[in-house]
Design a protein around this nucleic acid. Structure first.
Lengths: 343, 343
DNA sequence: TACGCTCCTGCAATCGTTCTCAGTATTCCG
DNA sequence: CGGAATACTGAGAACGATTGCAGGAGCGTA
C-alpha cells in the first residue's frame, strides 16, 4: 500500500482532511496549489477501497466471459470500452467455463463493481440472475439464463444466422446438411441448432440424427465432430459449424483427410474468422458485428446503473443484433464425397 | 448495493458482528449453522470495499495490456490464471496502447489490487515503475521500461528469436532479407530489430536501410509495410515479420499481389499463428510458449507480494523465456522476385 | 463602521468490515 | 465438585475516505 493517506496531505498543508477531500472532488478551495503540491510530493493516491466504502460507487465495470482467449469475447470488451467513457474502467474476467468459478467471481464482484456484463455459462440455471435480483446490475451478452426475460440482454440473431446458412446450402442443392453446434444448454448452442432444424423442417428435409452433433465450442471439439461426420456411412455433403473455434477444428480435419472444399464438401461457419481471407478457399460465414454487441451491452448497462441510482423504473431491455451471410468460396453444389481414404 | 450487512446477519442470529466475522474467516463458532442459515436467507455478501479497507488485501490481481484483442495477451492472462489459485481473482485491463489511459488505469488500480502484471507501452518512460516504487507490486511482462533492471520482469528471448529467423534465411542463401518490426520504443520492437541487425552483421551482410521497417504491430501496419517492400526497386527475397498481427497483414499483401510463397519470397513470422496449419504453405515461425510467460509472471508476482507482506528482501527477478524456430513451408532458397505486376 | 451575504472551513459521524483485548462460558482433570 | 486450562464471545477501535452541519473569514454595500 501507498501508506500515505489523505491525512498526511492535510497535515503537510495545514488544513483539515475535509478540505483535501473537497479539493479532490473538484470543489473550490483556498489553498488549492499547496494541496496540489503536497499530493505530488507525497505521491498521494486516494484509496479506492475507502472511497468505495463511503460512496458506494466504484467506477468499475466487469465483463465476465467463459473464454478469454476467444477473439469474440475480446471484441465484446473492446466494443464495450468505446462506450464506457471516462467514468468507468472496464475489466475482463475469465470464468473459464467453470460453473463454480463463475459463481465465485460474481460473488466477489458484488460491491467491487458498479455493474457486470455477463455471458453466463448455462441456461438451466438462475445463479447469475440471482445476483441481479439483489441489486447488482447485470446485462447478459451472447448468452442468457432461463429467467432472462426479466433482465437486460444483448443477443445475436442466432436462429436467423443458422437459418440463413442452412437455406443457402439447400438452395445450392444440398440435402445432406450437417451441423456441429455448441452445448445445447448454452444459448448460442441451442438457438443455432434450432435455426438449423427449423430451416430443414420448412424445406421438408428430414433431420438425420447423426447430422446434428452437439459439441463444445472448442477447436478440438470441431475437429472430432468433423471426423465423426466424415466417418458416417452416409456422410453429409455440407456442414455448418457453430462457432469460430469449431470452424478451425473442422477445417483442420478436412485438410488432414484431404477432403476438398467445396468440391467434396461445402462448409459455412457461424462467425467470421479474422484470417478468412488467408485460407483457400475463403470461408463462407455468418457475420455479426462483435464490437457492436459489446457496445450495445455497455449502453444498456449504463442506463440500468443510472436508473438504479436515480430510482427510476426501467423495464428490461432485450436487444438483438442482426446477422448476414458473407459468401466466399467454401460452398458449391453437392457432388458427393469420394471414397474415404484412411490416411 | 446489496444493502444487507454483517450487522443484519448478527442481529438476526443474536450474536455480535465479531462472531459473524469470525465465522466468515473460518474460525470455530458456536452458532455456525444459525449464522450460515441467516446468511443464506438474507442473501448477505460481505462488502469487498470494507474488507479491502480494513485488511489492506484485495484478493485481486490485474493484468494490464496494450491490446486485449491480441491472442498473445489473452494467453498471458490464461497462463497467469493457472498459477493464481483460489486466493486471487485475475482481471484483464486494456490500456488500448494509449499512454494516458495506462497511467490512469495504474492510478486507479492502486489500492484496488494486490499486484499488477503489466505490459508497458513505452520504454522511454518511468511512469509505470513509478507506481512500483510506491508499493504497488508490479511485474513487467513482454515489455519493460527504461529502469526495468530494478523491477521484476518476464521477457521472451527476442534477440535470439530474431537471430534464429535471420540466420535460417541466410543459411538458405538469402542476402536480401527485410524485417518489419514493431515500434522501436517498445521492447519487442527494439530487441527483435536488434537480433536481426546483429545477425546480419555477424554474417557480414550490409544492412539496407529500406529493409528495416518500423511498423506498429497491427495487421494494417504489416500490410502497408509489406506493400512498401514489394514496391522497393530492389525488393527483398525474404521477410521477417515482427509479430502475429503483422504476419497476417503481410500475408494478406502477398496474397493480394499474387506473390508466391516461398517461390517468390520467403517469410518467417515472430510468434506462431493459431491457424498456421490452415494456410498454404504453413508459416515458418519463431515459437514461444505464451501461457508459460504468463504463468511465470504470476509466480514472480505472488512471490513479490508475499515478500512485501512479510517484509522480506527480494532482489528483482528477471526471467527470460526461450524460443525456437518451427519450420513449415514458407521458406526456400531465393530465386528472385518476378517482374512486379501492377494489379 | 456595521451589517448581511457568500464562500470556505473544520468537526465529527459514517460506510462495513477486521482485529485486539478483556471477559465469560465450557471443558477437563484430579 | 473445585479449579485451571481452554474455547469462544462482545465491545470498541481502527481502516481512509465522504459529507452534513455549524461556524468563521472575507466581501460588498449602505
Amino acid at each position: 500500500m501507498s501508506g500515505v493517506t489523505i491525512t498526511d496531505v492535510a497535515q503537510r498543508v495545514g488544513v483539515s482532511v475535509a478540505t483535501v477531500s473537497r479539493y479532490l472532488s473538484g470543489f473550490n478551495v483556498r489553498q488549492r496549489d499547496e494541496i496540489e503540491n503536497a499530493i505530488h510530493e507525497l505521491n498521494y493516491r486516494p484509496s479506492a477501497a475507502a472511497r468505495n466504502l463511503k460512496s458506494g460507487r466504484t467506477g468499475t465495470i466487469a465483463i465476465v466471459v467463459p473464454d478469454i482467449s476467444n477473439p469474440f469475447f475480446a471484441a465484446i470488451a473492446t466494443g464495450a470500452e468505446t462506450v464506457a467513457g471516462e467514468e468507468h474502467m472496464v475489466m475482463l474476467v475469465n470464468s473459464g467455463a467453470i460453473r463454480e468459478r463463475e459463481e465465485k467471481i460474481l460473488g466477489e464482484l458484488f460491491g467491487r463493481v458498479d455493474g457486470v456484463i455477463l455471458s453466463p455459462l448455462q441456461e438451466d440455471d438462475e445463479g447469475p440472475s440471482f445476483f441481479s435480483k439483489y441489486g447488482l446490475p447485470i446485462v447478459f451478452v451472447d448468452r442468457i439464463t432461463a429467467d432472462a426475460e426479466k433482465f437486460d440482454s444483448v443477443l445475436v440473431d442466432n436462429v436467423k444466422g443458422a437459418r440463413l446458412a442452412t437455406e443457402h446450402l439447400i438452395q445450392l442443392g444440398h440435402q445432406k446438411i450437417a451441423m456441429i453446434t455448441g452445448p445445447l444448454h448454452t444459448t448460442p448452442g441451442r438457438l443455432r441448432a434450432e435455426g438449423y432444424t427449423s430451416a430443414l423442417r420448412k424445406q421438408k428435409i428430414a433431420l438425420q440424427e447423426s447430422y446434428l452433433i452437439e459439441s463444445d465450442f472448442t477447436r478440438e471439439g470441431g475437429y472430432a465432430s468433423m471426423v465423426k461426420l466424415l466417418e458416417d456411412p452416409n456422410p453429409p455433403t455440407a456442414v455448418i459449424t457453430g462457432n469460430n473455434f469449431m470452424s478451425i477444428g473442422a477445417l483442420e480435419a478436412l485438410k488432414e483427410k484431404r477432403v476438398r472444399i467445396p468440391d467434396d464438401i461445402s462448409i459455412i461457419g457461424f462467425d467470421d474468422l479474422d484470417f478468412s481471407t488467408l485460407i483457400e478457399p475463403g470461408l463462407t460465414a455468418v457475420f455479426r458485428h462483435f464490437e457492436a454487441q459489446g457496445a450495445e451491452a455497455m449502453r444498456i448497462l449504463l442506463a440500468r446503473i443510472s436508473a438504479l441510482a436515480t430510482n427510476t423504473e426501467l423495464s428490461p431491455q432485450h436487444s438483438v443484433v442482426d446477422v448476414h451471410l458473407i459468401e466466399r468460396g467454401s460452398c458449391a453444389p453437392p457432388t458427393g464425397l469420394p471414397a474415404q481414404s484412411k490416411s
